[in-house]
């Protein structure tokens, strides 16, 4: 009956989202009067999962599952849910989790609520609050199925410590040939860069920066803050920056702790995609730019002067604070 949580790892190490979904699952388990079971893939140990309320870790160790494979992972999670008799399954909203959740929902005939931002309002029936209309609204969704899948938005619930003794158990799901009908030929991923999905801080540039040659100062600021870089849609459409940096309603969503918008006007489609960020800072020379209505802090002025200065000051601040 335990709440099952899919805990993501990379090269054997749990990602922060794993602890976030575990924290949330613990909250749900408390409401249901049960415990949390995690399923991990090729992670060495239970790591810190116990710290966030996990009582049991089902460890899948399989060479064939080294690379993420939505169908096979979904199949394994399904078997774990059946073994544990889990009625609620919690996953993150990473690209991988969003990929496997609908497949899992079909396999388990489970209702699936994506982009969930808070603990259920009630468990019988299970009702959750989620974002809709790309953050322009919230929507309360009731799941009527026996088994339910909750996709928890990044940074919505946070980490909650709840020291628990996590027991570890090897788990070998039986996977079929059909689970491996898609093969990864190559992966192209910058190993040393913070991704928009994982970043606590995102520094984003818009058309106000005039051209790709001016992105050095954006990158410096991002590096100083340990942040990911992002951009508005026209910037990626013009090829100044890669499409993978395009954020907004039709690009990637941003749910960072801090979002810094430089030379971005704040069009409705841009704001929709970044508004889940906790704190927003805008730097723009036009005091009438709509972004000033949507941000927490603002500096009116020329980005070309402000950004390098801010970076210098942040370096001093970091040096003084460490």
């Amino acid at each position: 009956m335990s709440v099952l949580v899919y805990t993501e790892s990379e090269e054997g190490q749990f990602k922060k989202t794993a602890f976030e979904v575990a924290s949330y699952a613990k909250g749900v388990a408390d409401m249901l009067g049960t415990e949390v079971t995690a399923i991990s893939f090729n992670a060495q140990s239970a790591g810190d999962l116990g710290k966030y309320g996990v009582s049991k870790v089902l460890k899948v160790n399989d060479e064939k599952l080294q690379k993420f494979n939505a169908k096979a992972y979904a199949d394994a999670i399904k078997q774990a849910a059946e073994k544990e008799g889990s009625k609620v399954i919690v996953v993150s909203q990473s690209a991988n989790a969003k990929y496997l959740a609908p497949l899992l929902a079909v396999q388990l005939e489970a209702g699936y609520a994506s982009n969930v931002v808070a603990l259920p309002e009630g468990t019988d029936p299970l009702q959750v609050k989620r974002t809709a209309f790309t953050n322009k609204a919230f929507n309360f969704t009731k799941l009527s199925t026996d088994v339910k899948i909750i996709g928890l938005s990044k940074n919505a619930f946070g980490l909650k410590e709840n020291q628990t003794d996590a027991t570890e158990e090897d788990f070998s799901p039986s996977l079929s040939e059909g689970d491996f009908a898609i093969n990864v030929v190559s992966v192209d991923k910058a190993a040393d860069k913070v991704t928009i999905a994982d970043a606590e801080i995102v520094v984003s540039g818009g058309r106000g920066l005039k051209g790709p040659e001016n992105w050095g100062m954006v990158e410096d600021l991002a590096e100083t803050l340990g942040a990911a870089t992002a951009c508005s849609k026209p910037v990626s459409d013009m090829g100044w920056r890669p499409h993978s940096e395009h954020v907004g309603q039709t690009g990637k969503p941003v749910a960072a702790n801090l979002y810094i918008a430089i030379g971005i006007s704040g069009a409705i489609q841009h704001l929709a995609g970044v508004s889940a960020s906790k704190t927003k800072v805008v730097i723009n020379n036009d005091p009438e730019a709509p972004f000033f209505k949507a941000a927490d802090y603002g500096v009116v002025g020329d980005a070309f002067e402000i950004v390098p200065k801010l970076t210098e000051k942040l370096k001093e601040f970091k040096a003084g604070n460490s």
Binding site: A137, S144, V281, Y297, G298, K313
Partner: peptide, 30 residues
């Protein structure tokens, strides 16, 4: 059969006022 039902909607709370920081006073922003 359906599996879920959107029972109600809510709009996000209006944002509080922005704090403007002078471009010459970035220490305040930090």
């Amino acid at each position: 059969a359906t599996h879920s039902e959107a029972v109600k909607f809510e709009k996000p709370k209006p944002k509080g006022d922005i704090k403007l920081v002078d471009a010459d006073n970035l220490d305040e922003l930090i």
